[in-house]
Design a protein around this nucleic acid. Structure first.
Length: 597
DNA sequence: TGCACTATGAGCTGAGCG
DNA sequence: CGCTCAGCTCATAGTGCA
């Protein structure tokens, strides 16, 4: 829901990228699977710092093994929950999934458990000497196939540590060409790291990055060349992977009505949430339903294995919007916002009815996106149909309909198709009129903000159960707020917003939300934060101490790398933007830890 | 420099069919 | 079960202009 986030720091490339991916792809190495190791410490003996059972239980509940948790607490001290979580995630990133571990030539677990929390995984790799990997005294007969291959690479002039990693990463069947390809890429990535160290930390907008590239197009080329390579390699790896691993247990229902829609509740009214998922606080997470395979399983594995509720907003409005929602809200006694919005294109846009040809059978619009059709396209379509008296041949009809569906075009005159106006999109999404208009906001920014937003009626239906539970109002943490879909939904439900802490990278979107907040005469506090990474444990603790905790954590993390519309970088959850899901996960857990104190 | 405009498919799902 | 086909998708990057 939030706008595109451009916050590339020096972590954009990493020789150790694969470790990151293992952290980010729990379908292969879920954090909930880390507890398969030895439980090595009791609560009493767990920590020299005397870590509380509650704290240990919390992290164990998140899926980390007890000994890992104890060590992390020892390393960081009991008070620093964010540092503990960071350490645990680092341990986890280093730990291999069982299927991979079988083939690993060296003792990955031992390395992980001995690993100091303050180091990045990349530094960690750099710290290992060649001797750590190749014993030196082994004869060839005693060496495994992988070790032999490593030695071969060393003979070719590659550092032994890197060779060992390459062999382990590419697998036992990898050819020498693949391995050298991997090593070259790693070296390129290292060079890119050095390049990126020159950068100031890229901030919220793309401007800083743009400034950096300006004046030296070679920098840009190098920057993206490595990025493209990594993408390509990732795709190749995906193809090579065992198809069994690709099975995604997430099934998108048809019809996509989740636990029910107004007037047509689903048969299933009950669900059981795991204990650790039960609030406070309530949480509500959203993203595109049609994400690449495995993404929803991964997201679900981080959010207490709660199955997503997939809902298409075409059951709430005149436009489709297929989204998945993971939340711990009750699902009975939901009710819709009133008035019920127009359900068909003609009801929503009455003027189009006059010009709508009989052969255009659409009654609902497709997903409202961030881009609109070009004037050239609508001109081509006008020319294609105007020679026929309202009844073009089937081939023309088919072409025109294809473009209409693709671009959500509507008939606004005789033979005249047009994309939707921002005002119309606002209305279709359930926002108040002029919500995104004026105040120095460009048309492009309006469309971007709207295209990335919630459908208010849909979200409000899910959130409606909170009305009775919080009669005096709610304290809300809104992550990736965008233009404030969640806030508008709660407000339209009549839920008083006592305090809203909103995190949104786009200044334009923050202005829109602030403007709405003031124009609706909100009596509560709106605190806005620009960068989600600024919301660390200290900040959260300070906020929670001030307001007595959050009742709801709501947000949809960036979908840029998940959306099917993205032809350039549909990289999945490890994509530059969509990986911010892990910030949602981090913040949710930190809030739970702090509130549990 | 910001904005508007434009061209750019892949990847996935499900229906239909043999 | 496998194949074909149709349909859909919170986007990105380059260019030109004021």
């Amino acid at each position: 829901m939030g706008s595109n986030v451009e916050n590339e720091g020096s972590d954009s490339f990493n020789w150790d990228t694969e470790d990151e991916q293992e952290f980010m792809l729990p379908s292969r190495a879920s954090p909930r699977c880390f507890g398969n190791g030895v439980v090595g410490c009791s609560d009493e003996a767990s920590s020299s710092t005397g870590a509380s059972t509650k704290l240990i239980s919390h992290f164990v509940g998140m899926g980390f093994s007890r000994d890992m948790v104890c060590k992390a607490i020892d390393d960081n001290g009991e008070g620093k929950t964010d540092a503990i979580l960071e350490t645990l995630l680092t341990y986890s990133a280093l730990e291999k999934s069982p299927s991979e571990r079988e083939d690993v030539a060296y003792e990955g677990e031992q390395l992980a458990s001995d690993f100091s929390s303050s180091e990045s995984a990349g530094d960690f790799l750099d710290d290992f000497s060649d001797e750590d990997y190749l014993g030196g005294e082994d004869t060839d007969e005693n060496l495994s196939e992988m070790e032999k291959t490593s030695k071969q690479l060393v003979c070719m002039g590659y550092p032994a540590a890197e060779a060992a990693i390459a062999v382990e990463r590419c697998g036992p069947d990898a050819s020498i060409i693949e391995l050298t390809d991997f090593l070259s890429a790693a070296q390129m990535a290292k060079a890119a790291d050095a390049l990126l160290e020159e950068l100031p930390r890229f901030g919220s907008s793309g401007e800083q990055r743009q400034n950096y590239f300006n004046g030296d197009p070679r920098k840009k080329k190098r920057f993206y060349a490595d990025d493209n390579w990594e993408r390509k390699r990732h795709k190749q790896r995906e193809r090579r992977r065992d198809p069994d691993e690709e099975i995604d247990s997430t099934i998108i229902p048809n019809p996509m009505i989740g636990f029910g829609i107004p007037g047509e509740p689903c048969r299933r009214h009950q669900r059981t949430l795991p204990n650790e998922a039960i609030g406070p606080p309530y949480f509500y997470y959203e993203n595109v339903a049609l994400a690449p395979k495995g993404v929803w399983s991964t997201i679900s594995s981080y959010l207490y294995e709660i199955k997503p509720e997939f809902v298409d907003s075409k059951y709430f409005s005149a436009a489709a919007r297929k989204r998945g929602y993971i939340h711990n809200l009750p699902i009975s006694n939901r009710y819709p916002l009133l008035p019920i919005p127009p359900q068909t294109i003609h009801e929503a846009l009455p003027m189009t009815k006059n010009w709508w040809p009989s052969w255009d059978s659409r009654t609902k619009l497709n997903c409202l996106q961030t881009c609109l059709a070009s004037a050239r396209l609508t001109d081509r379509l006008r020319k294609a149909v105007e020679d026929y008296n309202n009844e073009p041949p089937l081939t023309i009809q088919k072409y025109v309909m294809e473009q209409c569906r693709k671009w959500n075009l509507v008939w606004v005159g005789r033979n005249k198709l047009a994309p939707l106006e921002p005002d119309e999109i606002e209305s279709l999404l359930g926002f108040p009129k002029n919500h995104t208009r004026g105040g120095g906001i460009s048309r492009t920014d309006r469309l971007k903000g709207l295209g990335n937003s919630f459908q208010v009626d849909t979200v409000a239906y899910h959130l409606s159960v909170l009305k009775e539970m919080f009669p005096s109002g709610m304290t809300v943490l809104s992550l990736f707020s965008g233009i404030g879909g969640a806030e508008v939904a709660l407000h339209r439900l009549g839920i008083h917003l006592k305090t809203v802490v909103s995190v949104e990278i786009s200044e334009t979107s923050r202005n829109i939300l602030r403007s709405w907040w003031e124009s609706t005469n909100q009596r509560g506090n709106l605190i806005d934060i620009d960068d989600v990474q600024k919301l660390d444990a200290d900040k959260l603790e300070q906020l929670i101490n001030s307001f007595g905790g959050f009742d709801l954590i709501v947000g949809g993390s960036p979908c840029n790398n998940l959306s099917g519309s993205n032809r350039i970088s549909r990289d999945g959850l490890e994509g530059k933007h969509s990986s911010l899901f892990f910030e949602y996960f981090r913040i949710l857990n930190q809030v739970k830890v702090i509130m549990a104190k």
